[in-house]
Design a protein around this nucleic acid. Sequence first.
DNA 1: GTCTATAATAAGATAGAC
DNA 2: GTCTATCTTATTATAGAC
Lengths: 204, 204
Amino acid sequence: MPKVSEEHRVERRDHVIEATLRLIVDQGVHRLSMADIIHESGLSAGSIYSHFASKDEILGAVVELSLMTATANLRELLAREPLPDPAEVIERLLPKFAGASGSVALIQVWGQAVVERQLGSIATTHVAQLREAFDQYAEYWLAEQGIARPGAGRELGALLLALSQAFTVQTAFGEPFEVDELKASIVRAAELFAAAERVGGHRG
Amino acid sequence: MPKVSEEHRVERRDHVIEATLRLIVDQGVHRLSMADIIHESGLSAGSIYSHFASKDEILGAVVELSLMTATANLRELLAREPLPDPAEVIERLLPKFAGASGSVALIQVWGQAVVERQLGSIATTHVAQLREAFDQYAEYWLAEQGIARPGAGRELGALLLALSQAFTVQTAFGEPFEVDELKASIVRAAELFAAAERVGGHRG
DNA sequence: GTCTATAATAAGATAGAC
DNA sequence: GTCTATCTTATTATAGAC
């Protein structure tokens, strides 16, 4: 196995993937052409096609990277001491690009994943992992609040994942959404959840 | 003003818009070609171009219709007696197509709106209206629960709008999301909100 | 208004030299 | 592996008859 060559290969692929991601943020998937990717990456057509079989393969790699990034970020947050609060977790899920860019990219990625079989199955895998990470975070966070009811973590995890999706949508849109208001909603929802658990657990 | 002609015009436009929407649900915006629209609508190229200046104009109309539909549906729900519960409201927001299709279309529409200036401003308007309708629904619903604190409607409205966005994402994806779990989250969040208001109002 | 046929261009992918 | 040049097909939009 030639090691240098392998490193080079990965480096080149990442370079192309990131150029593509930038383009998607700027102009959207539906205006994305190979000519754009060639220009933005600074590589040539021949070079790109020696690393990717097709434009679709590049898109697949972009989808995978985007979704993996969110899960990786959440896992990193899970390991922090002290544990970040729910609003912070959701805010730091997409730091690949600053501000709205990560959200814009992710929404485009969703649009692809929802419509293309192959991308959809990639997405399913990563989303399941993201969900697990959220459940675990919720469990830890509830434990800090002195709550340990089995199942509570999963319930709050579901809510937080849902709210993180809303966060993605709203930051991508910008106007007329207000990020601070949404963050307040998230914090409040989590607090209400914890308070209710503290008082009486989940009433059926 | 020739009335028949005007009706005809609107009818033809709607026909094209709905054909386009079907295609978007099936194959996504990024694979949408005029040839597809021509075939799916059953009209000819010449006919379509006599009603729309360009493919982009068709897409704009699709975006506008999709977003208007959600607001219109919510307003209709607002007028119902008895008032539907939060989970039902969110579920019935996108009944234009049954099941996941409405969500799939809407996610595609978001992807477009987030990236194209012109579509973005259309979206901003409609989203603001949707938000207002949600606030009002929340106010009514809280009133039914015996809660009338000024501002409470806006707070719950923000939460419900956010959760409706998550609902759109999750129904569009399908696996591994579970709609019933999300609906349970929505109901529970609303109930916790109401319960907290009943006990002590919003603590700062 | 609507149709068929087609012009003009854009886009994905490959060939072949280095 | 990488480049330039190019092939081939798709694609948007229009022309002109009816």
